[in-house]
Design a protein around this nucleic acid. Structure first.
Length: 405
DNA sequence: CATCCACAGGAAGGACGGGGGT
DNA sequence: ACCCCCGTCCTTCCTGTGGATG
């Protein structure tokens, strides 16, 4: 009997009425065509193509909001460039590091090192030692190396621009006939340059390309482009695509979100054994994506951060926004009732900032004149989802049960 | 118009656990 | 075995500040 159930599942997956090739909608997929990014491809390409003439490309800075195709365009250009270079007998390689996931100087250097075939332990060495080894390895290398630092604003915000400075100067440490290194910095934050040391700024900003967000119409083109290959004929219609595009356009034209949305909508439809994807499926997908995101974030939060979150949740039951001081009072009460030593208000302030950056809380600084300067803190994520995730911890569930704040 | 609130947020550093090189 | 380094949380101490109030 169990076999019959499984057979049914297998059959459904194999002969999907929805998907033809789901991978085409995956976030890692680099498509052959990038609609509405022709100008950007041309600009990035003409900077990096200098290697084909045997000269080091200028360092390049790419700005644009999330999901505007910065990463896709960069990787697309590099992939094509490496192919072309090989035909011409030019040695070109590149290393891609997402500094949001690899958010310390050590990890970034270690990734670059392993990208050029150097084995580096993931901890234990000093950063200076990894740098020295990297320099040694590069000294023996020839050709061109392009280092892509994606979401580099995260790294700089948290760790400063020291490694950026070092990396932009790595060429001076190498023999003249060794590899020529170029840096491509990608950032979501336009004001990011202001955080940089003037020397880094001028070095990294030798060339700049700005990626404008997509509008709903462009998003539709992008979605259709992928949907045609990813879905079975007739499995999606224009209403579904337009709806995805509209939702994503509202989120500053984020194509990644749009594609995620479409993929998950397809998955929902498949699970329901529906003949095709509907707008309802997209709506479900939207909330599922949000839940996944919140769950993922909350799960990795340290205990006191979760307590702060619980405190914020309790506070919003009474009022839309809470000051830092009020939040701290509630938090302290929660901590004490759990028999925990409360962390300082300074620490809670940092936790709030982190939660704000993660999009779980909203915190904006306001001045209330005589009544001081503080932050008004509110819950940004869906409260019900948040509560559900927090309740996975039994002790927190008990705290959230309490009516009185 | 100066004052002064209630914090913001920078700087320095420490405890601790996970992991080196030699 | 020894000492070293890093990242994560956290503390302590600190200077800075927008604008209602007196």
């Amino acid at each position: 009997m169990a076999a019959d159930v499984l057979d049914e599942v297998f059959e459904r997956v194999i002969s999907s009425r929805i998907f033809r090739n789901r991978d085409i909608l995956s976030p890692d997929y680099i498509p052959e065509k990038l609609p509405h990014r022709e100008n950007e491809i041309r600009r990035v390409g003409s900077v990096l193509a200098q290697v084909l003439r045997g000269s080091r490309p200028n360092n390049l800075f790419i700005y644009g909001l999330t999901g505007t195709g910065k990463t896709a365009v960069t990787l697309y250009v590099l992939k094509r460039l490496v192919e072309k270079a090989r035909q011409l007998g030019v040695r070109v390689s590149y290393v891609y590091v997402n500094t949001r996931q690899r958010d310390t100087p050590y990890k970034v250097l270690a990734d670059i090192a392993s990208g050029v075939g150097l084995r580096v332990p993931f901890t234990g060495l000093s950063t200076a030692e990894v740098y020295a080894r990297l320099v040694r390895a590069l000294s023996r290398d020839t050709g061109f190396l392009i280092i892509v630092l994606d979401e580099v604003d995260w790294l700089v915000r948290r760790r400063g621009d020291d490694i950026l400075y070092k990396l932009t100067r790595i060429g001076y440490e190498l023999p003249r006939d060794a590899v020529k290194v170029s840096i491509v910095g990608i950032t979501n934050d336009v004001r990011f340059v202001e955080m940089l040391d003037a020397r880094v700024r001028s070095s990294l900003g030798e060339e700049e390309v700005v990626f404008p967000p997509y509008n709903a119409e462009q998003l539709r083109d992008i979605l259709w482009d992928r949907a045609r290959e990813a879905f079975q004929p007739g499995a999606v219609d224009d209403a579904v695509i337009s709806y995805c595009a509209a939702l994503a356009a509202r989120e500053h034209g984020d194509a990644r979100r749009a594609l995620d949305l479409l993929r998950v909508a397809g998955e929902v439809a498949e699970r329901e054994n529906a003949p095709r994807v509907t707008v309802e499926h997209v709506k479900k997908a939207w909330s599922q994506l949000e839940r996944d995101r919140v769950r993922e974030v909350v799960r990795t939060l340290p205990l006191h951060a979760r307590l702060v979150l619980a405190a914020a949740l309790l506070a919003t039951r009474l009022q839309p926004a809470t000051t830092t001081g009020e939040l701290y009072t509630i938090y302290r009460r929660l901590a004490r009732s759990m028999g925990l030593e409360a962390v300082t208000q300074r620490r809670v302030s940092d936790i709030v900032s982190e939660l704000d950056m993660l999009g779980i809380l909203n915190a904006r600084v306001v001045s209330r004149g005589r009544y001081g300067k503080t932050r008004m803190i509110s819950v940004a994520a869906d409260p019900a989802t948040l509560e559900e995730v927090l309740r996975e911890d039994r002790r927190l569930a008990a705290l959230l049960e309490a009516k009185a704040v």
